[in-house]
Design a protein around this nucleic acid. Sequence first.
DNA 1: GCATTTTTAGAATATTTATTCTATTTTTCC
DNA 2: GGAAAAATAGAATAAATATTCTAAAAATGC
Lengths: 278, 278
Amino acid sequence: MDETTIIPANPKGAPLSVDDFRTRLAEISADLPRRLRQCADFVAANTDRIAVSTVAELAVGADVPPSALMRFCQIMGFSGFSEMQRLFREAYSPGWPDYSTRLKNLKEEGAGSPSALLAEFIEAGRLSLEALAKTADEVALGRSVGLLAAAQTIHVIGLRRAFPVATYLAYVFEKMAVPAMLHDGVGKLDHRFAMRPGDALLAITFAPYSEETLALAQDAKSRGLPVVALTDRMTSPLVRLSDAVVTVPEVDFGAFRSLSATIAMAISLAVAVGSARG
Amino acid sequence: MDETTIIPANPKGAPLSVDDFRTRLAEISADLPRRLRQCADFVAANTDRIAVSTVAELAVGADVPPSALMRFCQIMGFSGFSEMQRLFREAYSPGWPDYSTRLKNLKEEGAGSPSALLAEFIEAGRLSLEALAKTADEVALGRSVGLLAAAQTIHVIGLRRAFPVATYLAYVFEKMAVPAMLHDGVGKLDHRFAMRPGDALLAITFAPYSEETLALAQDAKSRGLPVVALTDRMTSPLVRLSDAVVTVPEVDFGAFRSLSATIAMAISLAVAVGSARG
DNA sequence: GCATTTTTAGAATATTTATTCTATTTTTCC
DNA sequence: GGAAAAATAGAATAAATATTCTAAAAATGC
């Protein structure tokens, strides 16, 4: 290498800044044996704790013996933990800007900038979650869980903007070994006849309500299957087709839902159903 | 003194919070002998350094011998320096709740009522959003938007737990008339050849990272297409395949992500790209 | 399936760091 | 100004903490 290189590529030297540290971490963590990988992952997720923790504490957090953490420090290029910690102690500036200050900073990037948008969506999500906490109807939620837990197969439908929620539910059900079927409309195939007596339908739709979802709910109802609705308000056309209705208040920003509250509700429903089933 | 006083009524007990600490400091520092006053002054002006400094370092800063600082700690009501430091270390790292054990407890106690679960998921979502606000990397976000806005077609991939995010992105891109293609793996069809020069890939994956997503990213990279990563940490294997990386801190509750922060980030990215395009 | 190399755990050790103690100095108050 | 009390410095010690080392376990290559 050309020795006139002013800033040394620092191939094996210790990282000199937190940024440097992150880069190095990303570089090496591609192929790492098990314990060292645990260290890397934990450190990546808890970088801020390094400055105020001992080797032993971090080791417990990463679920490795202290000596593994020492080896990790060394392959990161430090002589040991103390040297690594010094980097973070010097860079330590406590009290990240608190949540609201930070949001203001993000917004000040200028209207329409990615950061400003992010701030808006974060705020929308948080408002939605707070509203949900205040308005959640425990009785309706309990009844919904009961209906779904008693079903043989749970059919899930949610299209367009509700589709992400439906796919997440399908994922969670699968992880919990709950028999569930996602009606996704692929190939315009209509799997309504997959719904058998003893099954239940979980239908998700928000204004403007999706025709296909309403149609499937109608079908389930007319065949006497229990229908659980996850929708935006009690005036939703889904309500009169359903045996239990869970509503979720969601703050829209522009044309788009934050989905935070909806997903929190969906996941609670799914996990509750999963544990009710054993 | 009455020898029956077992616990000294704690009228001068240790401060229990940083606020408490400041109050106590203000109270006592009125009349203090010279060295202790130096300690008080220095500590008042450098409260934030307590968490990451040793007695010796602070003593040098306050220009007193270490033993003076020890006396100061005791005057403040602590048993010693370590106890005082603990207050500041704990106050700094608020420590995310350990949701996986909490969920296990909920299940084991059978007390996993749906509304209790909902409360937990709402909390997890809120924490995630706040963490996102605090840690969001505006530069990386800006770069990602730039890359995607310059692309002809945007290819989106995200499977399993990331699939809801991918589908939501596809929805938003469609609404904004941005040419985008969702690689959903339906029918095990691999649409890698749909990626043409001038296109870009937006890849989403969280631990445990999805093989297919990494493979597609690798493919895009080797063909020289820009890759934007939306992932959980800088140690993700996606990082070394990508030209821009956006990380999202998400509180996991048991095996499940709240997704609030991830979706907020995704939607911001999509809307920013949409408006950058016109 | 065996030999070689890498990785690991945990005990042993070295180092740093906190804390206490005592002789000395400074302050207080009569 | 001198006796009593309080405060101080610095050395001595105790405790916590980091670091190294070795035998054992995995992983790798042939």
